[in-house]
């Protein structure tokens, strides 16, 4: 197998799949297909988390991103009844400029990394910090206050979403 270990094979496959699905997400015209490809990308990233021994975050990634956030997106897309035919498209020149800027950014990032030293991540049970027990210990001792603030943030977002989404009766009756 070309002298590669199972971890390296998994890394390569998951990376290729993530990049491929991300590209398809950007270049598909239909919004529903875009959302489905983004869900596949999130699953690939969850696989990467498993490979990095971050089991808790892998599960949270699938439950929160692929489960909750993307279902919300699909719900809104279906509510608005969007399809590929009336999808607005940018001018060809604008899209070409976007692609050129992205290519230049990639060039700069890869160029900046060329001389960096190679550090190996040791995989396969060596790192225990991603387990629920250890992460929970850190979360509820060191980061207890930010954790509580996050709950207030979620409550504020909930109230804000309802306030914005509510039909404004005052304007309509005028």
């Amino acid at each position: 197998m070309l002298g590669l270990s199972i971890t390296q094979w998994l890394f390569g496959t998951l990376s290729l799949m993530a990049i491929m699905f991300a590209l398809m997400m950007v270049f598909t015209r239909s919004p529903v297909n875009s959302a489905l490809y983004l869900i596949m990308t999130f699953f690939c990233i969850a696989g990467h988390y498993l490979l990095l021994n971050a089991q808790f975050l892998a599960v949270v990634q699938i439950v929160v991103y692929a489960g909750a956030i993307m279902v919300l997106f699909l719900y809104i897309i279906m509510l608005m009844n969007l399809n590929a035919d009336e999808e607005p498209r940018k001018h060809v020149l604008t899209r070409a400029i976007a692609a050129i800027i992205g290519g230049m950014l990639l060039f700069v990032m890869i160029g900046a990394l060329r001389g960096a030293e190679q550090l190996q991540i040791v995989q396969g049970g060596a790192s225990q910090i991603g387990l629920v027990k250890n992460l929970g210990k850190v979360l509820f001792t060191e980061f207890l206050f930010p954790f509580e603030i996050a709950s207030v943030l979620l409550l504020a977002a909930l109230v804000g979403a309802i306030m914005i989404g509510k039909r404004d009766t005052n304007i309509n009756t005028k």
Partner: peptide, 10 residues
């Protein structure tokens, strides 16, 4: 299993 992946790839 201890064949790690360089951080640069990530």
């Amino acid at each position: 299993m201890l064949n790690g992946i360089p951080i640069n790839y990530y």
